[in-house]
């Protein structure tokens, strides 16, 4: 982590760190029951109000830019960038293939670098710029890598494809696309069960040799 500046300030409110916070209404209700509890506190406990209050405390603010658009969200700290994209923002172009950092289907760019979004908590990208497959084309004009994947049939079912393309773009940007061999090594984090590997290599080589900006 070279830059922590963008992380949200740690929350210092005492109840946020208290694991028993969900029960505070129930507990206070219990304790105060002896001493004549206010009726509304008991009612609130019954209606799971404590849970709802706790829920608000459990979420953290997350500000980030996705495909050029700013987003201000409240997210649970445990939510991954992948699930936030897919489940909260309906950006389903980024795929879940394993949720364990083992397949590359969820690859996105964070500040221009390829990142496995299933192993990235949302709050880790606060203040950063995220690019997903949906943000790669310029309107109707496909990114050269997308064109090359089409031409070379760099996919079959298409499920690994967004991850492959995001990885492929980064592979060239990183300077790791200088030979077939090098491309294979640096694209090995992206599994394609349909077996489009040779076609993917051909697509990347063509883009690299074509010299168009990626």
């Amino acid at each position: 982590m070279e830059n922590n500046n963008n992380l949200p300030e740690p929350d210092t409110r005492p109840d946020v760190k208290d694991p028993s916070r969900r029960d505070f209404l129930k507990k206070s209700a219990l304790i105060t029951a002896v001493a004549l509890t206010p009726a509304h506190a008991v009612k609130a406990a019954e209606k799971h109000m404590d849970e709802r209050i706790a829920e608000a405390f459990e979420k953290m603010p997350l500000s980030l830019e996705i495909n050029g658009a700013p987003h201000n969200l409240m997210v649970e700290p445990r939510s991954t960038l992948l699930d936030i994209l897919r489940e909260q923002l309906d950006l389903t172009g980024t795929k879940k293939g394993c949720d364990l950092g083992q397949c590359g289907a969820c690859t996105v760019h964070v500040d221009g670098h390829r990142v496995i979004s299933c192993l990235t908590l949302g709050i880790m990208v606060n203040g950063k710029k995220v690019t997903t497959i949906e943000g790669l084309a310029k309107g109707d004009q496909l990114h050269p890598m997308q064109e090359a994947f089409l031409k070379h049939d760099g996919f079959q079912c298409g499920y690994c494809t967004p991850g492959q393309i995001m990885s492929a773009v980064a592979c060239i940007r990183e300077g790791h696309a200088n030979s077939e061999h090098e491309i294979r090594e640096y694209m090995s984090g992206n599994i394609c069960r349909c077996g489009a590997y040779p076609n993917i290599v051909n697509a990347i080589q063509e883009v690299k040799e074509g010299g168009l900006p990626v």
Partner: peptide, 9 residues
């Protein structure tokens, strides 16, 4: 359907 697949749509 390639265009839909390479654009995430």
């Amino acid at each position: 359907d390639g265009r839909l697949k390479v654009t995430g749509k």
